[in-house]
């Protein structure tokens, strides 16, 4: 990804909002990721320059926290909760069903950039276990048959 001037300006505005304070790096990265969808090296470089810190520091933080990603997600990011309550109620089988149907592994995106698959730990909706999130939408008590139905919701659109 080569980064255009317009996007450089966007990053600068975000950094300015936090007074170019490198102590606010995590907040800056949150906002930047919301804007761009992910944090490629080029973006990290500009964040580093603006906050007057090294790329190594920014990269260290980005790679440390699971919330930040350096690869673009699919149009519909699928997250399977693998917290304990969901695990006990069969999240692993649901995850495997997604893998089989989408033919991708966790952390990958389908060839048409439509779906990406990841797992996360506990969204706190343990009463609905097992839980699957597609974007912000939550699907509760997901069964194996339900997996195809979830995908169908997005394949039509």
């Amino acid at each position: 990804m080569t980064i255009c001037e317009n996007n450089v300006a966007k990053i600068e505005i975000i950094c300015k909002e936090f007074n170019y304070d490198k102590g606010e790096l995590i907040n800056v990265l949150h906002k930047t990721q919301t804007t761009f969808g992910y944090l490629p090296e080029e973006v990290q470089q500009i964040v580093a320059q603006n906050l007057n810190t090294s790329l190594a520091h920014v990269y260290g933080v980005v790679s440390f926290y699971s919330f930040f990603t350096m690869t673009p997600k699919g149009k519909f990011p699928i997250n399977i909760c693998t917290g304990t309550a969901c695990y006990v109620r069969g999240a692993e089988k649901v995850l495997n069903e997604f893998k089989t149907l989408l033919k991708i592994k966790v952390g990958e995106t389908t060839k048409d950039d439509k779906f990406s698959l990841s797992n996360l730990r506990c969204v706190g909706a343990c009463g609905l276990a097992p839980v699957v999130l597609v974007g912000e939408k939550v699907y509760g008590r997901v069964t194996l048959d339900g997996v195809q139905k979830i995908l169908d919701d997005y394949n039509e659109s």
Binding site: L29, F64, Y65, S66, F67
Partner: peptide
């Protein structure tokens, strides 16, 4: 804000995270 790291529940780790590290 945290960014998804269980270890940040530990208070010294949490403080480093608040400092942007």
């Amino acid at each position: 804000y945290g960014a998804g790291a269980f270890v940040c529940g530990e208070e010294t780790a949490l403080i480093h995270s608040m400092e942007g590290l």
